[in-house]
Design a protein around this nucleic acid. Sequence first.
DNA 1: CTAGGATCCTGTCAGC
DNA 2: TGCTGACAGGATCCTA
Length: 282
Amino acid sequence: MPELPEVETIKRGLNRYLVGHKIVGVDIRYPKIFVGNPRDIEDGKIKNVRRFAKVLSIDLDNGYSVLAQIKLTGQLIYRGPNLKETNISKKVFGGLGGKHTHVIIRLDKGAVLYYNDVRKFGRLKVIKTNEVTTSGFVEKLGPEPFLDLTLEIFKSIVSKNKTPIKLILMDQEKIGGVGNIYANDALWLAKIHPKRPANSLSPLEQTKLFKSVEEVLKKGIETGGASELSYVTADGTEGKYQEHFLAYGRGGKSCERCHKAKVEKIKLGGRGTYFCPNCQKL
DNA sequence: CTAGGATCCTGTCAGC
DNA sequence: TGCTGACAGGATCCTA
């Protein structure tokens, strides 16, 4: 669930809280999640946190970075002097340091960065900073909305593929950062059926979809992301985009735009897919 | 090249 | 009440 807006929100929080802290130790409780040598980051001072699509890179001043791919249920939560907030969302299952806390990064001044992950799909990977952009996943990422995904490039990607448009939007090697929630909502906003072959979109539809993608992502960032499953921000609180869902998760409910049909739920590429059969025709 | 399925995980929920 | 099974889903890997 964490997609571009959620990870961007976490990035902003981590930049606010982590920068300047020194890592003093790493406790690994579930080894599969932590890849690389924890000693490489000990004594390193956090300089900056970057985002590449849905991946974060926590850069240290000693030449190493921690690549964080939180996937479905990973949470990076800071506690320490840079934060006044003490309330933690109940979506932090098990609490901080509980059964779902798999890595604890101890910082100076008594601060802590917790990695929680109910489903254990996420990974924290220690890697040299100058290898971040050439490492497997990051190198393969497609252009990203608001960054290098221009309308021209979007049109060229879309018109070159006959795969259903929703799968193109979610394919990280074609377009970086868009996941299931925002793909569903962008297609609803653009009134395009998720199963439409990408290359069947008219030039007008291409432009409309491009703008819709940017619009829903922007809304996601403004509202701090969608805390539908277990996404929380870096201070452990929830985002609000789930209050603005257009199609995602609205199966069986009346379409908010036409009120003439109920949002349908189907499976596409193994993912829950929501659309209005009246507004989004094949 | 694309399509489809299995895999990793566990909380939640439907059905009996 | 308690058990069982289906389901959710990002990315990867494997087969057809």
